[in-house]
Amino acid sequence: MARTITAELFASLDLVVEAPETWHFPWVGEEMLAEVAREQGEASALLLGRRTYEVFAGSWPNRGDDVPLARQLNAMPKVVISSTLDSPTWHNTEILGFDDLVALKAGGNGRLTVAGSIRLVESLLAHGLLDELRLLTHPVVLGEGRRLFDTYEGPRADLELVESRTLERGVQLTVHRPSARH
Rank of each mutant, 00 (worst) to 15 (best):
V67I: 12
H182Q: 11
R165K: 12
S12R: 12
E18D: 12
L47H: 02
R71T: 02
D150W: 05
I5A: 01
V175T: 15
H91Q: 13
Q72T: 00
A19Y: 06
P139F: 09
E94P: 01
G116E: 11
N92Q: 05
E31C: 04
N92D: 15
L112V: 09
R71P: 00
E30V: 05
V141E: 04
E18S: 14
G97S: 11
A157Y: 04
A7Q: 07
D99Q: 13
L69Y: 03
T4E: 15
V16H: 12
L47A: 04
T151Q: 13
L9K: 09
L47E: 00
P77V: 06
T151N: 13
D131E: 10
T137N: 06
R3L: 11
N109C: 01
G154P: 07
L135D: 12
T6Y: 05
L125M: 15
M76A: 04
G58I: 01
F25I: 02
P178Y: 09
A126H: 06
V80W: 06
L167N: 08
T137D: 06
N62F: 14
L142E: 13
R3M: 11
E35C: 10
D131C: 11
D66T: 02
V55A: 12
P68W: 08
V114S: 04
L133S: 09
A75V: 02
L136M: 15
E30N: 07
R50F: 08
R111W: 00
H176P: 05
A43V: 02
V55F: 11
D66M: 00
D150K: 03
V140K: 05
P26N: 12
N74V: 03
T52I: 01
L148Q: 05
R147H: 06
T22E: 05
T89K: 10
S82N: 03
D131V: 08
E8M: 14
L9W: 09
P155I: 04
P139A: 09
L148D: 14
S179C: 14
L85C: 06
L120S: 09
T166N: 03
R156L: 14
L46G: 05
T113D: 02
R51N: 11
S44Y: 00
V175L: 14
D158Q: 15
F56R: 00
I95Q: 07
S44H: 04
V140Q: 12
E31I: 03
G116K: 04
N74H: 03
R177Y: 07
L129S: 10
D99H: 14
Y152Q: 08
E39M: 07
K78S: 07
V28K: 02
L13Q: 13
Q72I: 07
L124P: 01
A57D: 08
V121H: 08
G110W: 01
Q172V: 15
S12G: 07
L104V: 11
Y53F: 05
E39T: 14
M1G: 12
L135V: 10
R111K: 14
I81N: 02
G170N: 11
V175N: 09
A157P: 03
S83F: 03
T137M: 00
E39F: 11
N92I: 06
